Amino acid sequence: IDVRFTVNGLDVTVRVRTEEIAERVKELAKNGVDWREIQRIAEELNK
């Protein structure tokens, strides 16, 4: 599942395995978490 969001004007796409992880990623993006941090968290959750 590809999750797309915009952080500080940057369009970011993170690929995740499940809808649940996708929701977590969207939540982080909404809360203004840095995209590199979101990427790292997504990689952890995908394991």
Rank of each mutant, 00 (worst) to 15 (best):
V12C: 06
A22I: 02
E37W: 03
V33T: 12
L28T: 01
G9R: 01
I38Q: 00
A42S: 06
L28F: 05
R15F: 04
A29L: 13
D34I: 04
I1T: 04
L28D: 02
N8R: 02
D11V: 13
I21Q: 10
V12L: 11
I41K: 04
G9C: 06
L28E: 03
E19H: 13
L28Q: 03
F5T: 09
E44F: 06
L10F: 11
E43Q: 10
N8L: 04
K47R: 13
R40E: 10
A42P: 00
F5L: 15
R40N: 10
V33Q: 06
L45A: 08
K26R: 15
W35T: 08
D11P: 11
I38Y: 00
R40M: 13
I21N: 04
A22D: 00
L10R: 09
T18I: 02
E23R: 12
T6D: 14
E23H: 14
N31G: 09
V7H: 11
I41V: 11
I38M: 03
V7T: 10
A42F: 04
Q39V: 15
Q39L: 15
R4H: 15
I21W: 02
T18M: 02
L28Y: 04
E37G: 03
V16F: 01
T6K: 12
T18G: 04
R17P: 09
R15P: 05
G32F: 07
F5I: 15
K30E: 13
L45C: 04
D11M: 12
R4N: 15
E19P: 13
N31D: 14
E20K: 12
E19C: 10
V7D: 15
D2M: 06
L10M: 13
G9M: 03
V12W: 06
A29E: 06
I1S: 04
R24E: 07
K47N: 14
L28W: 03
V12N: 02
T18C: 04
I38E: 00
L10I: 15
I38R: 00
R36P: 15
R36I: 14
E23P: 00
I41M: 09
N8S: 08
L28H: 05
V3H: 02
V33D: 04
I21G: 04
R4T: 15
V3A: 02
N31F: 07
D11H: 14
E43M: 08
I21F: 07
G32R: 05
K47S: 15
N46P: 03
V25C: 06
I41Y: 08
